[in-house]
Design a protein around this nucleic acid. Structure first.
Length: 682
DNA sequence: TTCTCGAGCAAGCAC
DNA sequence: TGCTCGAGAA
């Protein structure tokens, strides 16, 4: 039986509510969809893609820009399902950075870039800045010159917020003001060095895309190429991204942007909610559709969320209404301290589990990754399985960087940064010897890997015996792999050559090697190593588990997540921990009014993740984390976002201050310690 | 010149 | 806590 694209799409559109349908079937100029939390934003955007195609748009003429690549893939797949065909598969979609990467590759020649340019991930960019800082003698301790991480932050903000350095420093890094001139020189040098090394950092990708869009011929070409542009999470765009979109819509007016100013939480990445608030000014012919009908949460939860959102200084007025009836009020749980909080969370999680809510349908959300330290201890003790999102990033681990450096060398043997890192893994080789070896290799005049092997003989003379063996293994693996066409065997050979060095260099070498196995497997599936490496920088896995794919569906585990990582997700039961002032809002954010506003939105995002039950925990006493040896502690107040009005919308629960469980736990610990101590005397 | 160890300090969210 | 830097030993 033949079912037309229009029929399929039409059937799906019947399920949309009136506002959603207005957004989906909008014709003509710019459209702003203000989609409150849980109002079916993704459904609307997917349906719009499907509707546009059903109305005759060419899928390859659609550009869908999302916040993560996963979101892009999901949306394209869903739009395809709506159409009852895979025509939507050809929609161009991805993050700004990955799309920029593709376009810059295509137009590399026009941009004066070599075809095999590499992409620096943020930690590589940090290292390069650190190197230049040292070269210029700015690293001396007394001068209090900013550290490498701060340098990258400053640089990145200039680029992404499109603001001059002096303004950025004055506004966000006032303690660096005495160094502005040195910073200018350093950043100039950074730009030159990246050019020399044929490397682009993430900011460069956007800059080059911006330059392409700005070009009279190429810009017009791109404008014409994308019949329709759709942007998700518009509130998280920075000035540079906003500018790119504007450049791409000088002739054509077909632009759909979706977002929620109340969920703008990426200010630290130079995003600004002002862009979505000012959208109607930038595009005077824009139509605005607001989605307020919430399909996720119960009304009592939304009442609290609405109350918190209403405290903001500037916002599009919105009031979320629940689709479902009933529901219980959020619970505000006051605990004596973080231990009591951990204990209580475990009890409630297990309780819900016994009532039939699977662990994976429950989540613990926190402002900062370390807020769950004690809770993780308690979960392990009780053998409750959990997975934590956010936190230390996998690509920042030293051994992972080592391996990636080695992979980069097969692609580009002239990569000095990679060499510098790899050489120092050899026993008895430090910065000085590594530098000498680099001089001997004279990478600038290197044409191919065969040449490398020749010059390497000279380098070997510089090395002492223990280093030589490992070095020979590395170089033979590199020359061998340069001639291998398939990625899989290449990566495995390189891993094997690196393994003894990793084992030697790190105390926990064996554990670290296991991480490399995952990476080896993932790389083996890629068509090209350079694309794999670039994509890794553009879409970094948050853990080795992420590389290995989603865990078994049978596995049931509790989700622990930072609020940032929880954006866009939802659970039956949500536990927001550490809702005390100083933690949430974070006291670091309180130096500016905008900082406080962003914390409020973050809190709002946390609350709106819950479907059925929401518990907010306020530990009243907390120990100062950094100097845990002394038992100094402070008394926390409840988060300032939990105003009287907000509190009135919750059920307040005060846990007893002299908890029986708490004292018992303490006694057990004391006994163990005593036993250990007695053993010590023998 | 490299390696090890202790002190000092900053600290978060992430494409 | 965990990273980075400086001091001092090998």
């Amino acid at each position: 039986m033949f079912v037309s694209v229009q029929d399929c799409a039409a059937a799906a559109f019947d399920e949309l509510n009136a506002e959603q349908r207005a957004a989906v079937t909008h014709r003509g100029g710019p459209l702003l969809v203000l989609a409150g939390a849980g109002t079916g934003k993704t459904t609307t955007l997917c349906s719009r893609v499907a509707w546009l195609v059903a109305e005759g748009a060419m899928p390859q003429g659609l550009l869908l820009l999302t916040f993560t690549r996963r979101a892009a893939r999901e949306m394209v797949a869903r739009a395809g399902a709506l159409l009852g065909s895979n025509t939507a598969g050809t929609v161009a979609g991805g993050t700004f950075h990955s799309t920029a990467h593709q376009l810059v590759r295509v137009h590399a020649a026009a941009l004066g870039l070599p075809p095999n340019f590499g992409v620096l991930d943020p930690s590589d960019a940090c290292d390069l800045l650190d190197l230049l800082r040292e070269e210029r003698g700015l690293a001396e301790r007394r001068s209090r010159f900013p550290r490498k991480g701060t340098l990258l932050d400053i640089y990145s903000r200039c680029v992404n917020a499109q603001q001059p350095l002096s303004e950025v420093v004055a506004a966000s890094f006032p303690w660096c003001e005495e160094h502005v001139e040195e910073l200018v020189a350093l950043f100039r040098l950074y730009g030159e060095r990246k050019r020399e090394l044929a490397l682009l950092d993430l900011d460069d990708l956007l800059l080059y895309w911006h330059a392409l869009a700005h070009d009279e011929v190429l810009g017009a070409q791109m404008d014409a190429m994308f019949e329709h542009i759709l942007v998700d999470e518009y509130q998280d765009l920075n000035a540079l991204q906003v500018e790119i979109v504007r450049r791409l819509r000088t002739e054509r007016r077909e632009l759909t942007v979706v977002g929620d100013d109340a969920q703008a939480i990426y200010g630290f990445r130079s995003a600004s909610a002002e862009h979505i608030l000012n959208f109607p000014d930038h595009y005077p012919d824009a139509t605005v559709v607001t989605l307020e009908h919430n399909y996720r949460s119960t009304q009592p939860i939304l009442d609290l969320a609405n109350e918190v959102a209403a405290g903001a200084t500037r916002f599009y007025p919105k009031r979320l209404r629940a689709d479902r009836e009933g529901g219980s009020r959020p619970q505000l749980v006051f605990c004596v301290d973080q231990s009591a909080q951990a204990h209580e969370v475990c009890l409630r999680v297990l309780d819900a589990y016994e009532q039939g809510t699977a662990l994976r349908e429950q989540a613990v959300l926190m402002r900062a990754g370390h807020h769950s330290d004690l809770l993780e201890l308690e979960l392990s003790r009780r053998k409750i399985p959990y997975v934590k999102y956010g936190g230390i990033r996998y690509l920042d681990a030293a051994h992972v960087k080592d391996f990636l450096s080695l992979l980069r060398l097969t692609d580009n043997p002239a990569d000095q940064l990679a060499w510098f890192r790899i050489l120092q893994l050899l026993e008895g080789v430090g910065p000085v010897t590594a530098r000498r070896a680099l001089d001997t290799l004279d990478l600038d005049s290197l044409d191919n890997t065969a040449q490398l092997a020749e010059r390497w003989l000279a380098v070997e003379q510089l090395l002492k015996e223990p280093a030589r063996q490992g070095a020979v293994r590395l170089i033979s693996a590199l020359t061998w792999s340069a001639e291998q066409p398939t990625v899989g065997p290449r990566v495995e050979r390189l891993r094997d050559a690196l393994a003894p060095l990793i084992r030697n260099h790190y105390k926990d070498g064996a554990t670290r090697l296991r991480d490399l196995d995952e990476l080896t497997r993932a790389a083996a599936e890629a068509h090209s190593l350079s694309i794999f490496l670039a994509e890794l920088a553009l879409d970094p896995p948050s853990s080795t588990a992420a590389l290995a794919g989603p865990p078994d569906l049978d596995d049931d585990y509790l989700i622990l997540s930072t609020v940032h990582s929880a954006k866009g997700l939802e659970w039956d039961a949500v536990h927001v921990i550490a809702a005390s002032d100083g933690n949430f809002p974070s006291d670091m954010a309180l130096t500016t009014p905008e900082g406080l506003e962003e914390e409020r939105r973050l809190f709002y995002v946390a609350l709106t993740r819950a479907r059925h039950t929401l518990s907010i925990y306020v530990p009243l006493r907390y120990y100062h984390q950094p100097h845990a040896r002394t038992d100094t502690h402070g008394y926390g107040n409840q988060s300032r976002f939990l105003t009287n009005a907000a509190e009135a919308l919750c059920d307040r629960i005060d846990l007893p201050t002299d908890r029986h469980d708490w004292t018992t736990t303490n006694l057990v610990t004391t006994e163990t310690v005593t036993v250990d101590l007695t053993d010590l005397w023998h």
